[in-house]
Amino acid sequence: MASVFTPKVVTANALFEGDVVYLAADGDWTRRLAEADLFTNEAAAALALLDAEARAHEVVGPYLADMTAGPQGPQPTHFREAFRTRGPSNYAHGKQETV
């Protein structure tokens, strides 16, 4: 039996600011994880990543990050992705001050 696919979002850093961005369902980049498109299908996720990689003038280093579906949209399964939704813990900088 095939192993269960962990849902994923496409994420990267914005080219100009370096800020963390996610691919939304409308194809735009969003700064909010809640608005990210959650892929539950492996092939669809892989295709979305390929598309994102072609948009090198918008973002840097796109990759697929594991998530679970939550009431507010995708939720990180790993602390690194949780930190990326907020910013550093020593100052209220990054997303926690803007989003």
């Binding site: 850093n13 600011e17 963390v20 090198a56 840097v60 990326r84 997303k95």
Partner: peptide, 26 residues
């Protein structure tokens, strides 16, 4: 920024000038 260099081309150039991309920003 205008898209004529890819990240693969640009990365070694920015690193030569001390510019990294970290978790939340450059």
């Amino acid at each position: 920024i205008d898209g004529s260099l890819t990240e693969d081309e640009f990365k070694p150039l920015r690193l030569m000038n001390g510019l990294y991309l970290q978790l939340h920003a450059y």
